[in-house]
Structures are given as structure tokens and as C-alpha cells.
């Protein structure tokens, strides 16, 4: 059964339909890519999935349970975590405390300190544990945000442009991290503009344009889809 299933979701801002009957499913142990040009509605879909925005129609299911009317905190307690396109780190806390807040809110708060140390080591951030996140480069800040989401051991992890600001070596390491997450059984949904990363790690890709899913399937199919080429990938 899919960990996350979004069915027929629509969102309107005034007269504009940001999402129009969008459906998506993300399964445990797999990376699901979500790509599309700027303004396609990717981050809005994440907001709907995480409960920050109510859809005008459609439903969101988490582990088969309808969570459309559940609060963001309620969804997090059911195992959904996310990162943000625009960094949402707690700037007045250190990197360690950013993760600690999350771990203490997570399912195993007695092991919070241990989980934080483990996650910092896994991400190679131990030496930055006591730094304020604002002092870090954007790419590292994104990694901290990923760590903060990981530390609550989510079943579904929504990552909004996590590789933005990273160099090629860091992106490679990040791809390895994504694979290790899926090995743990996490369902990862990845919004990303770095096509080599998306095509390299995703098991399935959804393409969004003007609020609608215009294609979905394995990366090799998407890469050759004419609609997608015209709307987003181009001839390159």
C-alpha cells in the first residue's frame, strides 16, 4: 500500500488554479520525483500534503488513512516530514538544537540526544553542531533541514529542492543518502531541478505543469515523453 496518496487535489488562488485535480502516490522504499517548471504547483502540492494548505477539493491519504482535514502536526505524528523550498531553519538555535527540537517531538523522545548525534554523524555535520544555521552556506543549511526531517524517522519524507546550492560532489553524496533512506523503508518525494539527480535516484517521476500532472512514469519514459520535452525538459 502507498505510504502517501494524493487524489484529485485542487487549489485556487483567487481566479488562478494552482493545482487542478492532481494525483500522486509515493511508496515505501522508493524515491518519487516531482518535476516541473517554476510556478507549476510543486511546492503548493507539498503544502497540501503536509497540511499547511487546505485543498478546495481532493484528498490526502497517509498509510491508507484520510488525513485531508488533519493538522500539520497530526500528519507529522503519523510519520510525514518535509523540508521547504525557502529554508525554514530555526535561526536562533544551533544546528544541534534544530535537530533536537525535532527529535523531542518525534516518536522516541527518550533517545532524542542519541538520534541527533547519529543523524549529525550520518550527514557529516558533527563539526557544525554548535554553529548557528544562519552562518552556514545555503547547501549545508538544506542538509541541516533534511537532517531535521530525518531525525523524526518519518515514513514519508517530502524534500523540496534539497540539492539547490550544492556542488556536484555534495549532490553525489546526497544521492547516496537518498538511497540509504529508501533502504530504511522511507517513501521519499523529491522536488528538484537537478535533472541528473532526479533521473539518477527516482524510481518514478511525476511532471507537473500549470497545476496539472502532464506525465508520470519511470525516469527513462519521462525523459523521452514529448509532452514533457515540450513543457519542461526541452531538447537538451
Amino acid at each position: 500500500m502507498a505510504s502517501l496518496r494524493i487524489s484529485g487535489v485542487s487549489v485556487a488562488f483567487g481566479g488562478n488554479r494552482a493545482l487542478d485535480g492532481v494525483g500522486l502516490s509515493a511508496e515505501p522504499g522508493r524515491v518519487t520525483g516531482l518535476i516541473g517548471p517554476n510556478g507549476a504547483g510543486k511546492s503548493t502540492l507539498f503544502d497540501v500534503a503536509s497540511g499547511l494548505r487546505r485543498p478546495s477539493s481532493g484528498q490526502v491519504f497517509l498509510d491508507g488513512r484520510d488525513v485531508t482535514r488533519t493538522s500539520p502536526a497530526g500528519r507529522a505524528r503519523r510519520g510525514l516530514a518535509r523540508t521547504f523550498q525557502r529554508l525554514e531553519l530555526f535561526g536562533r538555535l544551533t544546528v544541534r538544537d534544530n535537530l533536537l527540537v525535532a527529535a523531542e517531538l518525534g516518536p522516541d523522545r527518550r533517545r532524542a540526544h542519541h538520534a541527533v548525534t547519529e543523524t549529525l554523524t550520518r550527514l557529516g555535520l558533527t563539526h557544525l553542531a554548535d554553529s548557528p544555521p544562519d552562518a552556514l552556506p545555503t547547501g549545508v543549511g538544506r542538509l541541516v533541514e533534511v537532517g531535521r526531517a530525518m531525525v523524526i524517522r518519518p515514513k514519508v519524507l517530502l524534500l523540496d529542492e534539497p540539492a539547490a546550492g550544492q556542488d556536484s560532489e555534495e549532490t553525489e553524496r546526497f544521492a547516496a543518502l537518498l538511497r540509504s533512506l529508501t533502504d530504511d523503508g522511507t517513501a521519499v518525494v523529491l522536488v528538484e531541478h537537478d535533472m541528473s539527480l532526479v533521473m539518477g535516484v527516482c524510481d518514478e517521476v511525476y511532471v507537473l505543469d500549470l497545476g496539472k500532472v502532464i506525465a508520470s512514469g519511470p525516469p527513462e519514459v519521462i525523459r523521452n515523453d514529448e509532452t514533457v520535452l515540450a513543457a519542461y525538459l526541452g531538447d537538451a
Binding site: S50, G51, L52, S71, P72, A73, R75, A76, R77, L80, A81, R82, F84, E88, L89, F90, G91, R92, L93, D97, N98, L100, V101, A102, E104, L105, G106, R148, A149, I152
Partner: peptide, 18 residues
């Protein structure tokens, strides 16, 4: 820590289960 997290970003705090 939770209060400061809440102050810095309500959205992030809520999506972590706070």
C-alpha cells in the same frame, strides 16, 4: 527550545509535529 523554534518558524514547528 520549542518556544524559540515556534517563534522562528511556525510552519516548520508544526510540520515536525509540534
Amino acid at each position: 527550545r520549542r518556544l524559540i523554534a515556534l517563534r522562528d518558524s511556525e510552519a516548520a514547528y508544526a510540520t515536525l509535529g509540534g
